[in-house]
Amino acid sequence: MIYWKLFLAFFRIGIFGYGGGPTMVPLFYTECVKKYKWVSEEDFTDNLAMANALPGPIATKLAAYIGYRVKGWMGALVANCAVVLPTVLAMIALLQVIYQWKDAPGIYGMIQAIQPVIAVMTAVLTWEFLQKGWQGSKNKSGAAAALLLSVVALLFFDLHPGIVVGIALIFSFGYATWAVRKQRSGGEGEGEA
């Protein structure tokens, strides 16, 4: 029964995730956190960040992770197949139709009309993650500085997002390592007194 639920949840994500990975993230959140409660909000946020840092499509990485959490390797396989299957079927069935009718006003209008919906879904999810990150941050000025530097690097220096993520990971690792060492050395000093 759990495999069937996994298949249906990820198949729905695959069907309604028009536009690729970023548009699928809110669907993953709704199915896996809100509806089935397979992962907590914190786990989802952490693993979304990790999935964004790794190469490859985000949908398959999230499906594999959540499927694995629910039912091991077989769950990961079922979730991945289910999330990819709608795309494969749609490509096979509709590719010829799209090529024949791609210049038709109705098809062109439909494609143009969906773009604002994708932008709004992405903006809402970004805002929710920004709020959660801000609330969970112990160092508000550091979080604000990281956000500002990221925006400047992306918009003004036209740095590739992968490079920005890599730099953020390196600095985060360095800061976390420094903070843990500082905490340990402070704790040892207190024990000796």
Results as ranks from 00 to 15, higher is better:
residue 62 L to F: 01
residue 62 L to S: 00
residue 62 L to A: 04
residue 62 L to Y: 05
residue 62 L to Q: 03
residue 63 A to C: 07
residue 63 A to S: 13
residue 63 A to T: 00
residue 64 A to R: 02
residue 64 A to L: 02
residue 64 A to C: 08
residue 64 A to E: 06
residue 64 A to T: 04
residue 65 Y to D: 07
residue 65 Y to E: 08
residue 65 Y to M: 01
residue 66 I to G: 02
residue 66 I to D: 03
residue 66 I to W: 01
residue 66 I to K: 07
residue 66 I to Y: 10
residue 66 I to E: 02
residue 67 G to A: 11
residue 67 G to F: 03
residue 67 G to S: 00
residue 67 G to T: 03
residue 68 Y to K: 13
residue 68 Y to N: 13
residue 68 Y to P: 00
residue 68 Y to T: 07
residue 69 R to M: 14
residue 69 R to D: 05
residue 69 R to Q: 15
residue 69 R to T: 14
residue 70 V to Q: 13
residue 70 V to K: 13
residue 70 V to N: 06
residue 70 V to I: 11
residue 70 V to L: 10
residue 70 V to P: 06
residue 71 K to I: 07
residue 71 K to D: 15
residue 71 K to Q: 15
residue 71 K to R: 15
residue 72 G to Y: 09
residue 72 G to K: 10
residue 72 G to S: 10
residue 72 G to R: 06
residue 72 G to Q: 10
residue 73 W to T: 00
residue 73 W to N: 08
residue 73 W to R: 12
residue 73 W to Q: 08
residue 73 W to F: 05
residue 73 W to G: 08
residue 73 W to K: 14
residue 74 M to T: 10
residue 75 G to D: 04
residue 75 G to V: 01
residue 75 G to Q: 09
residue 75 G to M: 08
residue 75 G to H: 12
residue 75 G to T: 04
residue 76 A to Y: 09
residue 76 A to T: 02
residue 77 L to V: 12
residue 77 L to F: 09
residue 77 L to C: 06
residue 77 L to A: 14
residue 77 L to E: 00
residue 77 L to G: 11
residue 77 L to I: 13
residue 78 V to I: 14
residue 79 A to D: 00
residue 79 A to P: 04
residue 79 A to Y: 10
residue 79 A to T: 01
residue 79 A to M: 05
residue 79 A to E: 07
residue 79 A to G: 05
residue 80 N to F: 10
residue 80 N to P: 00
residue 80 N to T: 15
residue 80 N to L: 08
residue 80 N to H: 01
residue 80 N to D: 03
residue 80 N to E: 01
residue 81 C to N: 06
residue 81 C to K: 03
residue 81 C to T: 13
residue 81 C to W: 12
residue 81 C to R: 03
residue 81 C to H: 04
residue 81 C to Y: 10
residue 82 A to R: 09
residue 82 A to S: 05
residue 82 A to I: 03
residue 82 A to Q: 01
residue 82 A to G: 02
residue 82 A to E: 09
residue 83 V to D: 05
residue 83 V to R: 01
residue 83 V to P: 03
residue 84 V to C: 13
residue 84 V to A: 12
residue 84 V to Y: 13
residue 84 V to T: 13
residue 85 L to H: 09
residue 85 L to P: 08
residue 85 L to N: 11
residue 85 L to T: 13
residue 85 L to S: 12
residue 86 P to L: 06
residue 86 P to W: 03
residue 87 T to M: 09
residue 88 V to G: 00
residue 88 V to L: 14
residue 88 V to H: 03
residue 88 V to A: 12
residue 89 L to M: 12
residue 89 L to F: 09
residue 89 L to V: 13
residue 89 L to D: 09
residue 89 L to P: 03
residue 89 L to A: 05
residue 90 A to M: 15
residue 90 A to S: 11
residue 90 A to L: 09
residue 90 A to K: 06
residue 90 A to C: 09
residue 90 A to V: 08
residue 91 M to V: 11
residue 91 M to R: 07
residue 92 I to G: 05
residue 92 I to F: 14
residue 92 I to A: 07
residue 93 A to R: 11
residue 93 A to M: 13
residue 93 A to P: 01
residue 93 A to K: 12
residue 94 L to S: 04
residue 94 L to C: 14
residue 95 L to I: 06
residue 95 L to M: 14
residue 95 L to G: 15
residue 95 L to H: 13
residue 96 Q to V: 04
residue 96 Q to H: 14
residue 96 Q to P: 00
